[in-house]
Amino acid sequence: MDFSIFLQQLVNGASLGSMYALIAIGYTMVYGVLRLINFAHGDFMMVGAFLTLFGYSAGIPFELSVLLAIVGSAFIGVMTDKIAYKPLRDAPKISLLITAIGISFFLENLFIVLFGATPKAFNAPEYLTKVFHVGEIYLPISVIIIPIVTVLILTFILYILYKTKYGMAIRALAFDIPTVKLMGVDADRIIMIVFIIGSSLAAIGGIFYAVSYPSIDPLMGIIVGLKAFAAAVLGGIGSVTGAVLGGFILGFTEIFVVAMFPELGGYKDAFAFFFLILVLLFRPTGIMGEDLERSRF
């Protein structure tokens, strides 16, 4: 592979990895505080993309549409928890999981009813779709912006997690829910914050996706969500830095494997799945994870 192609793929991998990382964070944080695979999380990403499209095509400036979409997705995330998950905190785990898949299916089909099942063109403003040629490298501006914005967001999130009292509480909840409650932390408030952070980041990931692949459809969150979950497990479920790491590893792997073995292109969407299986087989706690499932008595 010659150097310019390598650089090109490196930038593409960083951009794709950013999206996975942003979405993976929500999975890992919700799993940390609720021990729940939030199947609806991938759909929050779709919601973010559609709300942006909806606002933008209704004449609202793009930047404001993005902002409103992020707020809207956060709201839907919080409401999902309040309406569907919270009443089931003490129910058997399987009820919670079934409800989560129900919410996921509900959002997908609601958006099919509202917007139709066919992919919709997403025409981002021109300044985001401009393409630079640097030597032989082909650089859409979005591919450069996405990783930069992602790094800024991640820095902010890590600051919240490690330097604020809410962040400490979130991390503590991931280890021992009953004890943290005993220590007087308002668990419901923490869980709400987790849903706000998680769904906002998923929405941002969805908007990045829409800008990079300029068409969106109501089922787009399923595959991307699955991949982001695999990334979270790869990094170590429960660990935010792990999720970021897993997201980037997955992004780079997808781009580079397809670049080196074009005949595997059709299986691109399957890599994440094999990662997931391999991690579960050989290192279930992932790269950075602690064993959150150790049995307690």
């Binding site: 729940l36 999981l97 699955l226 979950f229 479920i237 994440a272």
Partner: peptide, 12 residues
């Protein structure tokens, strides 16, 4: 492994 990986693996 413990955890609810069955659902996500079978979905995948």
């Amino acid at each position: 492994v413990r955890g609810d990986y069955l659902a996500i693996v079978t979905l995948g």
